[in-house]
């Protein structure tokens, strides 16, 4: 049972106080998107064994959504951060690379 620290209130919450929300940093595709773009947004989700970015809501706490960077295989948590970010911030990237030197961001 995971523990994640809510970046808004600093509470180290256990999994039962949280609500999972799937992959983070999705970019919404609206009415203008073509079928392929929309399919990618709505259905294609990453499911890596290893470093992953996820949405979690501190449901039984401050109610805020936040994002977590963690390893889905070892369950190591590299950090949690604000949901209002288009990409993981630099300190999260360096925390990941401190334990996974070969890991590279796949965004630009």
């Amino acid at each position: 049972m995971l523990i994640l620290t809510c970046p808004y209130c600093g509470v180290q919450a256990e999994e039962t106080e949280l609500h999972p929300g799937g992959e983070a940093h999705l970019k919404r595709v609206g009415p203008d998107g073509d079928d392929a773009e929309f399919e990618g947004y709505l259905f294609a989700r990453k499911n890596p064994k290893g470093v992953h970015f996820e949405r979690w809501r501190h449901a039984y706490g401050c109610g805020k959504w936040f994002l977590a960077a963690r390893d889905t295989a070892t369950l190591q948590v590299f950090g949690t951060y604000s949901a209002q970010t288009p990409h993981p911030p630099a300190e999260i990237v360096s925390a990941i690379q401190a334990s996974r030197p070969d890991w590279q961001p796949d965004w630009t």
């Binding site: 995971l2 523990i3 994640l4 070892t74 369950l75 190591q76 948590v77």
Partner: peptide, 8 residues
């Protein structure tokens, strides 16, 4: 190869 904590 022990069990790992949240900090890895």
């Amino acid at each position: 190869r022990p069990p790992l904590g949240a900090d890895g």
